[in-house]
Every structure is written in structure tokens, then in C-alpha cells.
Write a protein that binds this DNA or RNA. Sequence first.
DNA 1: TACTGACTTGGAGTGCACTCCAAGCAACAA
DNA 2: TTGTTGCTTGGAGTGCACTCCAAGTCAGTA
Lengths: 137, 137
Amino acid sequence: MSLTTAARVRPTGQDHYSISEVASYTGLSAHTLRWYERIGLLNDVHRSHTGQRLYTDADLDWLDLIGKLRLTGMPVADMVRYAELVRAGDDTFTARVQLFREHREVVRQQIADLQSTLAVLDFKIDFYEGAASRCTP
Amino acid sequence: MSLTTAARVRPTGQDHYSISEVASYTGLSAHTLRWYERIGLLNDVHRSHTGQRLYTDADLDWLDLIGKLRLTGMPVADMVRYAELVRAGDDTFTARVQLFREHREVVRQQIADLQSTLAVLDFKIDFYEGAASRCTP
DNA sequence: TACTGACTTGGAGTGCACTCCAAGCAACAA
DNA sequence: TTGTTGCTTGGAGTGCACTCCAAGTCAGTA
């Protein structure tokens, strides 16, 4: 759910990255990157003359955003929907902002839920520590 | 991920609730409640003379806790592990508190991730609204 | 030339957390 | 007596998000 041990550095600013460089940067597997492309979550990636994928900085920016949304539990289908809106052009600004507004509420609710759970965890930990200290005074 | 339209009220304080009452209270389905019991996430539930489940207030308390942990994305297997520790008795206090400490860090990281996403969403929404207001001044 | 390693594909497989199904039983209403 | 409702079971099915596989291509090195 969090960072991997990958480098997470954009290799050189060369604006064309191999799939393994992108995998290492994003923490996604090469499999997943190809799958994202297949389902339309990523625009068709440029190819070298031998057919290998060359990702651009714009692709990495997009993957950064997707990664954030994914961390919030947004379903892949919803992210694909957003990708389609972006591809459809500037007429979809209203739809996009609405999608984000709705998702912002979801995220706020999640934060509230997590904070309430955090309170419970704190309480439980205090309880168990209190019990332990009473057992070993 | 959040509340359903269910009642979410403990019916009467009668200390024995049918599976459908518990389903309505917790927002889980009756299927899921039986499944939780089967996998050991819930202790064996008391039965009526006809074999129907009668949940106690203690069961509801437990389900409240499980629900909190579930909201934080704790895997069911980990929750089962905790349930086993509780069943194993007071010798497992240390293990339990360690489990909670570790999970607390996970939850804190999730909150941080969500807040960073929230900032991105705010930025995107401001951007799209700015663009919209420039188009329709 | 032979090998290694990184890449390509479509389709099949995996793990998780449910979710449903078919068949059956008990209590109650018309 | 005949429904209807609500419950029971083990096992099979579902949807999601990957994850892997087999067979093949290409570039670079020994």
C-alpha cells in the first residue's frame, strides 16, 4: 500500500523510458503497465523502431496521478472513465471536475474513518499496555 | 466503503439478535456473517433450540471492531490471526499489542497518502474551475 | 554463431473477499 | 393444508486487480 524499495527517481529527464525503468519508478510491474495500456487507463505508448514501449514524462505524470487515485481505492473502471474524459477533449471539463468533487468526498470520508479507527487502536494499545504493566509492575 | 442505509441501531439490548438483525446493524450480509464464523473471524455463535444463530452484544462489539479494522484495509487473514490470539487467552497480550502497533503505523501512512491525494484533488478542481471560469467569464 | 537479457503478445491463472445456489427445515398466517 | 418467510448447510461462482505463461523478437556480448 505504500512505497516499495524501488528508486522512484525519474532516470534522466530524457523523456523516453523503457518499461522496466517505468516499473521501477512507479512501483508497478511491467505486466501491470501493459495491462493499464490494454484497458485504456494509459494512452497508447510510443514505440521504438523495434516495437518496444518508450514512455514519456507526460506518461509518468499521468501514472503519478493514477497512483494517487489508486491509493484512495478508486476502482480501475472509474480511472478508465476519467482517462476517456481526458481523451475526449476540453468539452469534458465539467464532467471531470464533478468526478473529482465526488471522489474528494469519498477521500474525506475515508480519512474520517481512518482517524476513528486510529482512536480505537490507540485505546486498545493503551489498554493492553496498562494490562501488561499491571501484570509486571 | 461507508455507511449503508441500514438502521445501525442495536435493536433492543435484548442480547440475542437474529442474523438478519445483525446484518442490518452491521451492514454486512447474512452470507458474510456466516462466512466470518466459518473462517474463525467470529467465535461460534449461540444457537436457538431450532439451530438458528443468536448473536450477543459481545458479538456485536466484536463486529464493530472488525468493521473498523476492515475499513482500514486490514486483510481478513490478519483479523483472523487477531481473533485466534484473543481465543488463545491472556498470554497473547504482547502479540496483540504488537499487531495493533504495526497496524497503527499502516493506518497513519494511509492517512498521509490520502491527505496528499486530497491536495492533488483540490489542485485539479481549482484548475478545472479556473479553466471553466476563463471560458465562461 | 551462440547465448543472454529485455522486451513483445493474447489469453489463462491467481488471490482476495465476498456472494450466491440448491435443497431443506421450522414457525406462523389464511 | 398450503403457502410465505426466515433461517440452515457445503460448495460453487463472481468481480476485481492484477499476475503469469508460452512462444516469439531484437540488441548486444563472447
